[in-house]
Write a protein that binds this DNA or RNA. Structure first.
Lengths: 343, 343
DNA sequence: AGACGGAGTCGAAGCGCTTCGACGAAGTCT
DNA sequence: AGACTTCGTCGAAGCGCTTCGACTCCGTCT
């Protein structure tokens, strides 16, 4: 392995000079800089990560804790992870992948070992075990998600409450009065994942204001589960004319089942989904949807964490404003009144 | 931060003794060991990763290069990544997440900087840029996937060729004679991703041996694309009675479209998929499938890489034997002959 | 009894880098 | 002209750990 000393010797300067060329922390004459850079190039020098970390107490690594379970949102998680990795690299950082498995111990381990300079946590629960540790930690952290108590923490998330409200508004404007929510799997609510509850709150509140009747049912992503949920919904609320789907895995089954039952989308039933744009656009009926901006969230988390590492940036909660894109799955409520041509 | 020296002082021993307690590389008396362990516990000591890496030239990190693109196999990639992270932790390693973006430069960087002790590469193309570097590298590497030339490399993958053959056999045994393959997106073939071509080879060869007619069409995962492909298939080969689907994203659209066209699965048409079991089991018609053992592949890759790091283990290519699980999407070919009750 | 070997511990020498203080040279101010 | 800066460079002191002798006991073998 070629070391700093090798480069220094090759360029005829001292080791510290090479170091300063690399870091730019002191001014170096153009001629020296060039000579050093040529030597680096020629020798194929890469600074030893361990030595650098030890001397500078900076590892240039950001830890990313992803959820272990794959019961929800796999594409979203993947998209976030890739966005984090890509953005981090652009800022000169690498990403260490931790699974939720270790839980709070992982936070302690990273903190104690200085393996990473900062942490990004995904799949944050309302009252997450890891948060007290994160608050005490020397190293900055950013959450993707929104816990109950955000004091002393930085968070990024979609404003799911506003997203829920937006769905209600869109459907209300189209004349719908009875709406069913196909929610996440029951387990997601049980572990108090914030986004699910917030979406529901947004839907409830705005529905109430707008005079809509709302029925919420948790639902797994399988055909069988969606089928059962759908049957129950129509049983309890035969007048349902619109669905809001939060569990992205449920969108395809839902559309297929509605079609099978002879309910046309959007003529008879409207469907709004909360999911990544890509998923919405590729459904059998392109879905009117509120996008989950996975990539933006990943990028923002990294930017925030890097800002903190550089001394800029403070704790703040950023809720990205939801955007509803109208595609082909929503339309005016079919009203059968005397005189209506369709009646 | 608490250091080795702090622990040593607290326990009343020298630093090296603490180090040996930690590593177990020299024998330590039970009493000393206990005292040191108590001190470690009480002080909440975690060894500094950088210092350890510098002194031992081992970072205890495994680098994982995942594909940047999300045009295929997202759940598989995610499952592999999680399996790698989990298995690595169980062996005392952490995982560094690299995206394919950097390409060969990433290999050089890891190699030069000693950031990781070993590398696991995913999304390997037949003639991958990174392979020459990996062959020269001091650090061991394992590929998940199978390139054209495997000399000097360790690889794990599903035996996709056998998987293809297995599909053909299953359908032949059920009496099918004309089979259509819904392949991966055209881009996947263009970049010469091994598994796609190997599957096809397996299908072709065995079909030929068994006297089946095979039609292969690349296909994106969207409804529109599957719809178009399906139309073309029935146009060219009206007698098609079975489908093999490789692009897992295409399974749902395919089933939905077949249903829409009044073709019952499995009564009129059989469908075999090559995808993770979870995907197959949750489809609208539970799919007969050859499993892509993502988790096993991830686990194996880590075990292999760890074996190499420990001096055990040599270069070898491991192709996992495919297993076909019969579910509800395949059945005997509907034969309309005079006298058949259905005719 | 003396030589020998293993178990248990310690001290010290690095690992390759960053960073601080120092120093000469050259420019700037009064 | 002398006193100050500023610029560019160097030497040396660590960062916290691993690891290699070396040393001391103490039990064992002849």
């Amino acid at each position: 392995m070629v070391t700093l000393a090798d480069v220094a010797q090759h360029a005829g300067v001292s080791a510290s000079t090479v170091s300063y060329v690399l870091s730019g922390k002191r001014s170096i004459s153009a001629s020296t800089r060039e000579r050093v850079e040529r030597s680096i190039e020629q020798l194929g020098y890469h600074p030893n990560a361990g030595a650098r970390a030890l001397a500078s107490s900076r590892s240039n690594i950001i830890a990313l804790m992803i959820p272990l379970r794959t019961d929800m949102y796999v594409p979203v998680m993947m998209e976030i992870a890739i966005a984090v990795a890509t953005t981090a690299r652009a800022h000169g950082y690498d990403v260490l992948l931790l699974t939720g498995e270790e839980g709070p111990a992982a936070v302690r381990r990273i903190e104690g070992s200085a393996l990473a300079d900062a942490m990004i946590l995904m799949d944050v629960e309302l009252d997450d075990d890891r948060l007290p540790l994160l608050r005490e930690a020397v190293r900055p952290g950013v959450l993707i998600g929104l816990p109950a108590d955000t004091t002393g923490l930085s968070c990024v998330d979609l404003d799911f409450q506003a997203a829920g409200a937006l769905c209600a508004e869109h459907l209300a404007a189209l004349g719908h009065r009875e709406i069913a929510v196909i929610g996440e799997a029951a387990a997601v609510y049980e572990r108090h994942t914030g986004f699910a509850e917030r979406t529901l709150a947004g839907l409830r509140d705005r529905s109430h204001e707008l005079g809509l009747r709302l029925l919420h049912r948790p639902c797994e992503g399988s055909y069988a589960a969606v089928s059962a949920t759908l049957a129950r919904v129509y049983d309890e609320r035969p007048g349902t004319t619109a669905f809001v789907v939060q569990n992205e895995a449920a969108t395809d089954p839902l559309l297929a089942l509605l079609r099978q039952q002879g309910r046309a989308v959007p003529e008879d039933v409207s469907v709004v989904a909360i999911c990544p744009d890509q998923v919405a656009a590729h459904a059998s009926v392109p879905l009117t949807s509120v996008a989950v901006p996975a990539q933006k969230m990943g990028q923002y988390a990294v930017q925030q964490v890097v800002a903190k590492l550089e001394g800029r940036g403070t704790d703040e909660v950023v809720l990205l404003a939801p955007e509803l894109t109208v595609r082909e799955s929503t339309g005016p409520r079919a009203v059968l009144v005397p005189g209506d041509p369709r009646s």
